[in-house]
Design a protein around this nucleic acid. Structure first.
Lengths: 364, 364
DNA sequence: CTGTTAGCGCTTTCAG
DNA sequence: CTGAAAGCGCTAACAG
């Protein structure tokens, strides 16, 4: 026994498929009371479920939203996904998920798959990359995206435009104030304490990472401080851990070298995202160093699951869920394009991990 | 300009749509070398992307896998989602996401939506509930699921069968050894130290929670200990926190009451999942209590993001990703039904948060 | 307000 | 091995 169709319902109700369609799925007003009632009963008794594929084919639109993330298990992305999901529900659409580990080639494939399914819109989250090895992939992705848009698709990218995408219509970018916020963080960290600043960043070419680094350096400069040293590593916990190990060794050495009474300048670490910061913190701890005593550290994102971490991590709050929602709304045209980008901004949140950099009375 | 169609490709290649279909998407062997080549070139030059909706309609199957979770931002679910996503990719399918906050009525709706899209299979994660207020919802969900299966759909449920589902064909349950593992945890916790055991559980009727509670009590009983007291609260961090606050008060009181020299029996808390445990730990800490000094605590799930939490949380590792993968494979028939449920088991992982319960030499 | 008639884009017998 | 024709289930003009 297979799913019953509209015409079966229509036949049972003694009306034409068109009429049945009008009352069951259609729009405007439903036809005559009596008829409508009869159709509805027939549908119910048959357990009729409209075939979305057929509907989609007929009206060429699918009620689908494609979401591309690097990794759905990464709390950064899952938070955004939650927002997307929510907005999708508001729009009466469903979300199609694709994960790509950040590889442009895979992203291209995902876009093609979404296009094949006639997704109404596509939301792309996850840092864009300008790394040379991604050049080819980016070109492919850009082409695919352009084609998708040309066919009437709507795209919203979180963060930065896809490299090389010649934004035709239907191409939106949800800007995240990474640079500004990182600058703010640097400025707040520089007010108290005289630290040696070190940035743990992702690979050069990762836009999100680069923005945050640039912002932080700018903040430092504005505070009259010299630029921080940059350690490049992977954009995840493990990268943070590795960098942390290296830093720990250095801290120990410099501490040993310092004269008995005096103390070496304390290091202030800025990891470009929370999970990297957590990794670095774990490394320091495993080397017997304590935070904030031996070094202070700050991250970025303010991942919810990490808020119970101790010492509480100083970081920059980003409205991840809202970002996902807005991207989704933009792609649906629900959100005015130019209507002042609805306050998508985060804020610096200093906590225990950067103590010493806090004004004495402020303790959070 | 709109997406090009198969017939356009066919026309350009000078063949019939049928032939074009055969070489581009079709099955078996591709027709004559020369023809095939011509078609492929035509397709490429037009940037042809098959319309999955039309394909689906024609062969009534969609290449879609529906995934239902309570909340995609919850690390427990996002880990499972990652596994599902992976398996889906292996199968050349895409995953459709639905979040329901655990409400059976929403789950029913999600199933209907998946059915409408003719999803090939549906994976349901997230604890089933037997709470009276969910009775109606469960019935609806069960009916919807039955109908879906009757129409040829495949369903895999993680944990427990949907309440009331009369498992027809295509209905699979991926069992998670919650009870056994909880018993094991209890047994390991009981070997060292003489504790007063308290369980922080979810609402009565939540299967996952109930299983873990039952298992823990059984483990205690097998160790010759009296059953633990149970505190019922929400199945999330906030619930854990609330319970923690209550426990903290009690610990302080009993400590004050104890004679100056002697000490009150230390409390051992078992929170039925990691986030609840973290919440409880945060509450204790905020009340000035220290773990494991003033109380020891264990969770369940071994959430990855929480592994850097200090004191390191004792917990039960569950192969979440693998669970997602297996559910997906089962629903695809890729996995033999009876073939000994491919070792889906976790293990107790004692760490610092239950110190004192560790044998002296074991220190994790 | 309802029914008829064409497709949406693709697959798939069934002939040739 | 290829082409023609008939749908998959639904919507959307048009008529009536």
């Amino acid at each position: 026994m297979v799913a019953s169709t509209l015409s079966e319902v229509a036949r049972l109700a003694g009306v034409s498929p068109a009429t049945a369609s009008r009352v069951l799925n259609g729009s405007a007003r439903t036809p005559g009371q009596d008829i409508a009632e009869r159709v509805r009963t027939a549908a119910a008794s048959l357990g009729y479920i409209p075939n979305a594929q057929a509907q989609g084919l007929a009206k060429s639109s699918s009620g689908l939203i494609g979401l591309i993330v690097h990794d759905i298990a990464d709390p950064y992305f899952s938070a955004i996904a939650r927002g997307v999901q929510e907005a999708a529900r508001e729009q009466g659409r469903m979300v199609l998920l694709a994960t790509t580990a950040g590889a442009p080639a895979d992203e291209r494939e995902a876009v093609a798959a979404f296009a094949a399914r006639r997704a109404d819109s596509i939301v792309i989250a996850g840092s864009r990359s300008a790394r040379p090895e991604d050049g080819e992939g980016n070109a492919g992705l850009a082409a695919e995206l352009d084609r998708y848009c040309r066919n009437g698709g709507q795209v919203a990218v979180v963060g930065h435009p896809v490299v090389g995408a010649s934004s035709t219509e239907g191409y939106h970018v949800v800007t995240v104030p990474n640079e500004e916020l990182a600058a703010k963080l640097a400025s707040e960290l520089s007010v108290a304490g005289d630290h040696h600043f070190v940035i743990i960043g992702g690979p050069a070419g990762l836009f999100t990472s680069d923005d945050r680094i640039r912002g932080f350096q700018r903040g430092l400069a504005e505070a009259g401080l010299p630029p921080a040293e940059i350690i490049r590593t992977e954009f995840n916990r493990s990268g943070g851990f590795d960098a942390g190990v290296a830093l720990a060794a250095r801290i120990k050495t410099s501490r040993a070298a310092a004269n008995p009474s005096g103390e070496a300048k304390r290091i202030c670490i800025f990891a470009v995202n929370d999970v990297m910061a957590i990794g670095a913190a774990a490394a320091l701890r495993s080397e017997g160093l304590r935070i904030p005593r031996d070094a202070i550290i700050a991250g970025f994102d303010d991942i919810e699951t990490l808020r119970d971490f101790r010492p509480a991590l100083s970081t920059v709050y980003l409205p991840l869920e809202e970002i996902g929602r807005q991207a989704t709304r933009r792609a649906a045209g629900t959100l005015a394009e130019d209507a002042a980008p609805p306050t998508l901004t985060g804020h610096v949140t200093l906590r225990r991990s950067t103590e010493g950099a806090l004004p004495p009375e402020g303790s959070g």
